[in-house]
Write a protein that binds this DNA or RNA. Sequence first.
DNA 1: CCGATTGATTGACCGACATCAACTCACCAG
DNA 2: CTGGTGAGTTGATGTCGGTCAATCAATCGG
Lengths: 246, 246
Amino acid sequence: MKSSLARSEWPVAVTTARACDGCGLVQRCFLARPLPDDNGECRDIVRRRYPIARGERLYRRNTPFTSLFQVCNGSLKTQRETPEGDLVVTGFFLPGDVVGIDALADRQYQSDAYANIDTEVCQLDFERLLSHCTRKPGLNAWIISIIGSYVRRKDCDLSWSCSLQTHQRVLRFFLDLHDRLTQSSQAPSSRLALPMKKQDIASYLHMTPETLSRNLAQLRRQGLLQLHENRFTLPDTTRARAITGL
Amino acid sequence: MKSSLARSEWPVAVTTARACDGCGLVQRCFLARPLPDDNGECRDIVRRRYPIARGERLYRRNTPFTSLFQVCNGSLKTQRETPEGDLVVTGFFLPGDVVGIDALADRQYQSDAYANIDTEVCQLDFERLLSHCTRKPGLNAWIISIIGSYVRRKDCDLSWSCSLQTHQRVLRFFLDLHDRLTQSSQAPSSRLALPMKKQDIASYLHMTPETLSRNLAQLRRQGLLQLHENRFTLPDTTRARAITGL
DNA sequence: CCGATTGATTGACCGACATCAACTCACCAG
DNA sequence: CTGGTGAGTTGATGTCGGTCAATCAATCGG
């Protein structure tokens, strides 16, 4: 597995130019363009960019944390185990998102990260990132804002994940997914591909696959969601936002 | 209200020595003792230390973020509003905890912070903190770890808040509270004071006060929890940990 | 001392969601 | 083609926890 390469195998001197060659995210990625206060010496933060096949694991729980990963294209999920032993999906990561932030506290990954579909990630060396931060306020602000966004997302998730009804949670999930997918690709908002399995959505939303299925059927009947063959559209986003309280 | 003082009213030149005078947290607080790479110039991070009476508000949602606050003694809660308009408690903060981290993303507080009981907080100027970070790796590491701990807590909360049964959630809450209270005060672990209302606990655990009450009664019958007049003990922590999966 | 207010407890009832089961469909190997 | 596997759907049934209501306890100001 690519993610388990030993340190010595990493191409240490990869330049940003080479690593970012052909990356679909190059328009939005902070590393592909010079930072406000960067004059080129931040490039070594990028270890490498590499693909993860669908179903493959990026990192494993309780292994030492060395790197953050930014999703270039595709999608990842993180999951952890409950006391009872079953798995719960704790997050989905789309192009532009940074994964591994839950490991900052004790320098160990707190979850397992898997590719939902064929995916490419950009590996960022955290120590180098930190060391540059002490000299570059812009970079420091960037990393703080990345972590801050992650915190905000978790906080929001926590406040609806239990207080809303199941059909509201489902609708809200698709609204959120819609927003994130369209802002990252600027593609027309119609017929977006659903980049994860329904089982995982159900797990993430704290419900069973059965209830998710029933709710999807209901939302389809109400004309709030179209979903065929892993492609979806939201015909009436304003009504949807009203229902979910957005 | 103390927290709404204008900037100009802040005693800008407070030294750490004066601000920390008589602070119950002085043993554990990072600011009371010199940092690994501090030679005294980080003192101006501490704006001031001041009390918040029980029920008073420390900051309000959607107001500009300028400061983090570290709890010296007492306890705080943060809460936010659901789409339906009712309030949900999103976190409890005990001595040593830092509150305001959810505001990092867009520089606005994302919740309302209130004192559960009479409380003292230490106000840390975030801009100054950041500016020192660029020169002091130790301070940068500290702030990253503070944020990291917050992230880990949120992640954990999210994974049990819905997947566990109510009695497990209640027991887990008391175990967690026990651990946090004893580690912050090094006091003997018996007869700890419960520093928040049961309503707020119920809200935080995503259940009604009635359900919380029933579960408390049940846990008392099972000999897993003693709770009288806002003081509690956990007679059998090992069994409790087994039940909650810790 | 007294009502007023807020918090906590207990009981009866009910509904949303989980559970269990059967079934369809797509995909793949042989 | 056939059999196997895993994802997804649909239906019948049960239950955990929410809702509503009454009661009790604690605090506070007069």
